[in-house]
Design a protein around this nucleic acid. Structure first.
Length: 226
DNA sequence: GCCAACGTTGGC
DNA sequence: GCCAACGTTGGC
């Protein structure tokens, strides 16, 4: 899913990379279905926590290798994030309703895995955190952006983004292939990755992780690559 | 570069 | 509202 891409954050300077984003547009229907999914995934934990202290975990995809979209390079790797001022960037370019609704559900300080997609070695590269909650993605109004959406109006923006800040690299890169091996094994044994969205919602560029999924993936850092 | 998965579009 | 055509995602 997506994919996403981003740019620098903050306030004033957009950069030029576009995140991955994707495209899309639709509307109501997309919104409705996205909502449903979101609620099934997130409200469960919300209701448990009664709205307090609830913490969610996320996985966000970005392409670490150069690729031109409308003549603009959408590359944005974790190294690129690390190189930004304050190691912070806005995650622009998400153009899928379901992914957008997850962006809108993100809360300050929640943690997200930075996933490298569409590249030589796909997988989880590091950790970042949400430092600004959802606000309008300006690239939807920029004609030259690969993620321009002529159907979106300034007074009612369709697409959102959040700001993320680099936290750390994974102690070792966790390849997609390794996660997939666990996912498959866990489907049989009922282990923590049995329903991981990376495999069950293939094209979703912004996705939630359960506490169990998040903890299990962190535990892999300490293990030898399998 | 191929192509499966899957979201979106648009005719009807 | 169905569904075939189409476009994109993203692994391999």
């Amino acid at each position: 899913m997506p994919r996403v891409r981003k740019r620098p954050a903050g306030a004033a300077r957009p950069d030029k990379k576009g995140p991955k984003g994707k495209r899309t547009k639709t509307d109501n229907q997309g919104e409705a279905s996205a909502k449903v999914e979101n609620s099934s995934l997130q409200e469960t934990s919300a209701s448990k926590d009664c709205g307090k202290n609830l913490s969610s975990y996320w996985l966000m995809k970005s392409e670490p290798e150069s690729r031109l979209e409308k003549g603009i390079d959408v590359k944005f790797s974790i190294e690129d994030l690390k190189a930004q001022p304050k190691q912070t960037a806005c995650w622009d370019g998400v153009r899928n309703y379901q992914a957008r609704n997850f962006l809108r559900a993100m809360k300050l300080e929640e943690e997200a895995f930075f996933y490298h997609s569409n590249c030589r070695e796909p997988g989880i590269a590091g950790l970042m955190k949400i430092v600004k909650e959802a606000y309008p993605d300006h690239t939807q109004f920029e004609k030259n952006s690969p993620h321009y959406d002529p159907s979106s109006k300034e007074d009612n923006p369709k697409w959102s983004m959040v700001d993320v800040q680099f936290v750390r690299m994974m102690k070792r890169f966790i390849p997609l292939a390794e996660l997939k091996t666990y996912h498959q094994a866990h489907r049989a044994t009922g282990g923590p990755l049995k329903n991981m969205a990376l495999f069950t919602r293939q094209r979703l560029s912004v996705q939630p992780l359960t506490q169990e999924e998040f903890d299990f993936i962190l535990s892999l850092e300490e293990k030898e690559p399998s």
